[in-house]
Design a protein around this nucleic acid. Sequence first.
DNA 1: TTATATACCTAAAATAATTAGGTATATAAT
DNA 2: ATTATATACCTAATTATTTTAGGTATATAA
Lengths: 107, 107
Amino acid sequence: MLKGTLQTIILKLLEDNGRMYGYEITQKVKEVSAGEVMLTEGALYPALHKLEGEGLLQTTSEIVDGRARKYYSLTPQGGKAVTSKMEEARAFIEQLQNLLDLKPAIK
Amino acid sequence: MLKGTLQTIILKLLEDNGRMYGYEITQKVKEVSAGEVMLTEGALYPALHKLEGEGLLQTTSEIVDGRARKYYSLTPQGGKAVTSKMEEARAFIEQLQNLLDLKPAIK
DNA sequence: TTATATACCTAAAATAATTAGGTATATAAT
DNA sequence: ATTATATACCTAATTATTTTAGGTATATAA
């Protein structure tokens, strides 16, 4: 349902919240979308691992209440990536609205 | 660059324009997006054939100026599909804006 | 006669997401 | 006690979609 924008969403959430762990991200997406967007773990974890592999995210592991948690946060490189990814997303949404005629065109 | 919304764009263009042929669709997308979105034929033709196979589109072939053209138009089923696909797209864009914080949230 | 525009198409590869699992601990309910 | 739910991580096979990179052919402008 997210189609190619998952990375941007993850980076943006981490920019806003400092650090988050996987499960927390799924819950945040659910909350922000009023239960309409369910970010599945099969999509999330591979995406997190990819972003980490690209050097955009870094991790720290902790045990909280007897359970393992892996916190993700932006690297300096990740910080730069958010800016460009957000600009891309903005442009993408705008073009989509143009093409779907969801935005009044300049005639 | 279109990521999953190509079908909706095709259906919407055909709803608005009655009938169009493949090349015409690529040029229309280019025009509407001011040259920023290039709908490649490798994406377009498989999508058109899939929609036709699903019974949402029908075709008529003509020779114009010595060149073959294949016009696509909505079937009655396709007409219904546009409505629901557009609603999906609207909801998708809205959630994307929420998640990317591109829309003021109701706090 | 070469390049560009028009017009159709496909197939291999890459990318991404869904589906459907698996492991494990804590806590609330039966 | 035991079962269900919530928390928390993960992967692998399949499916879906797009990109890349071709191929064919006609009309027209350089």
